[in-house]
Design a protein around this nucleic acid. Structure first.
Lengths: 336, 336
DNA sequence: TTGAAAGCGCTAACAT
DNA sequence: ATGTTAGCGCTTTCAA
């Protein structure tokens, strides 16, 4: 391609890929014409090797097909595109081992940055191994940002887990609810604990507490929510029966609603249900789901921004995105 | 790293990355130990340059956050992972220009294969440009597979657009419906036409036809469906009023349901509604959506399979995945 | 402003 | 079985 234009490799490189060096307009035009004519496309791996830096970002999440992570992925990839970067995506199913392997693969790819969504685990050994892998990645000029708290070492953007559930709980208290049940997430993850803490806090403010038996941990999935609701139904005696169940994620809430429908328990007539996230179809469910709206795509986009410009993030202080309780048909005052 | 183990670069390369050549167990162990100790990770761009082949796949789709494309993306990335490949994802919003640019970017990345989902456009000029870009990509040893028909030149996996809507239509006919309306997709896309053809065919089989005025084209989105339904309501006189409306995609159907809910039109009491795709929450909507179930993830996975092993696909004959009509609460016999 | 040449980190002949 | 060496296609000093 360079010889087709009758110029040196260096010159061709300078005009086709943004160099600081200026090139004469005559030559530049000739190079561009040749490139066009030959359908020349730069070899990105070669560029990456020469520049020792790629134009790609990696994102690790549980499942692209999940509405929550899908929206975050969209935010990441939009922000990446805007920054001229490509996004490589890895679904980990929330498996720490897969996650670890993913970090190493993306490190091997020398992606410029890494966004971790939903990778906060409770197991200290897992956390330590992740820290090690990430430290080594960062040592090689990669940068990291996380969605949801991983500790002070990482630029963090958070959906306001604690404040969100606290507000939601207060909204339910205002409706008149006093007996709460919670469908939480898996113990191995850190997010459910944060969200649960918000519920407990808001309850404590009015002198209430959450009975241990009214809290059940489950996977953050539709089936998880369904199973959890079934367990609650079987476990709780009539005196323990709640007037509202808080699912700590919308996809769980969907399962909760399905289980209640199957059991013929009216929502919100007999029992109110609320979720968290405001995923895409939350308002179209039967009944429309009360939830905490989180700017899902922004979550991803802000993570990318932080990662690309670390100066905009304060170490130790997560960027907490504003959230908002959205009251819909799945909640009502408790039955009298 | 090689010198740390006291061996040559070649030997190190041979043990760390699968070469055909055998290496003595003593040396191999030493190399592995050093690699481990130094936390060595191969530089993928350098490997790609040397091997002139990457371990990545590209996938182009409208929107990862859309339940349809999210599921397809999951299928692609799972199959890719299984084949030891990473997935680069690009959301194009169904914009042909973005799509074209995407193909070139992924070509520049020298991705091993390219999966196109939802990129079949009607505009012959767009199609020609895509063909050119893809031909040049393939000339460079990249391979392509498409989800949904792009013509005989590409290995194709299809959700059975025509047969699916035909079956759906027959199911509605069996319920007793005779007056149909259709919320179709954008004219610039090829998929809606295929799906519409299925409806027309099934109708023709019983001597019926679809009135032009009862068909409206719109974006394949919730808002698109909503707007389309509104237009139908305004456009159709009482005599033209249908007993069932077929939305040619589930996300559209969601909008249709929302609009009908707002207008106080009972589904399925006054009007039945059906969709296509069976996206994740279709069964949890209000009311649960009758639709055509498509194995969404398999769509993506099969595309990857074809792309990796072209011998398994027959040129000119798309692999049509089995689909199945799922009757739910949004459809019922017409009001008497 | 342009060109020549030395790598970037790896793989794959080719030797030994 | 192991080592030597010539690239892979680009960027970037360094000279001119």
């Amino acid at each position: 391609m360079a010889r087709h234009a009758g110029v040196s490799l260096a010159t061709a490189s300078r005009v086709l890929n943004g160099s600081t060096r200026a090139v004469g307009e005559r030559l530049a035009a000739r190079v561009r014409a040749s490139a066009e004519e030959l359908g020349y496309l730069p070899n990105a791996p070669a560029q990456a090797l020469a520049r020792s830096s790629t134009a790609t970002l990696g994102v690790l999440l549980h499942d692209v097909a999940d509405p929550y992570f899908g929206a975050v992925a969209r935010g990441v990839s939009d922000a990446a595109t805007e920054a001229g970067l490509l996004t490589v995506l890895l679904s980990t199913d929330g498996d720490p081992e897969v996650e670890l392997r993913g970090i190493r693969m993306l490190h091997a790819q020398r992606v410029r940055g890494l966004v971790l969504a939903g990778s906060a685990y409770t197991d200290p050994e897992v956390t330590a191994r992740m820290d090690t892998a990430l430290a080594s990645y960062r040592a090689g000029t990669g940068s990291v940002a996380v969605v949801t708290d991983h500790g002070p070492d990482y630029p963090t953007v958070s959906p306001g887990n604690r404040t969100g559930t606290a507000q939601l709980t207060r909204a339910m208290l205002e409706l008149g609810h006093r007996r709460f049940a919670v469908v939480s997430g898996p113990d191995r993850m850190r997010v459910p604990a944060e969200r649960l803490a918000g519920v407990r806090q808001a309850l404590a403010e009015v002198g209430l507490s959450l009975p241990e038996r009214a809290t059940v941990a489950t996977e953050f999935s539709r089936e998880g929510g369904r199973a959890a609701m079934a367990r609650l139904c079987e476990r709780l005696s009539p005196e323990e029966w709640p007037t509202v169940v808080l699912a700590l994620s919308d996809v769980c809430a969907v399962g909760v609603l399905a289980e209640l429908r199957d059991r013929g328990i009216a929502v919100p007539g007999e029992l109110s249900v609320a979720g968290f996230d405001d995923i895409a179809l939350a308002g179209d469910l039967a009944p429309a789901l009360t939830t905490v709206r989180v700017p899902l795509e922004r979550l991803g986009a802000e993570a990318v921004r932080m990662l690309l410009d670390p100066s905009t993030s304060t170490p130790g202080r997560p960027l907490e995105l504003p959230n908002e309780v959205v009251l819909r048909a799945s909640t009502a005052p408790p039955p009298s």
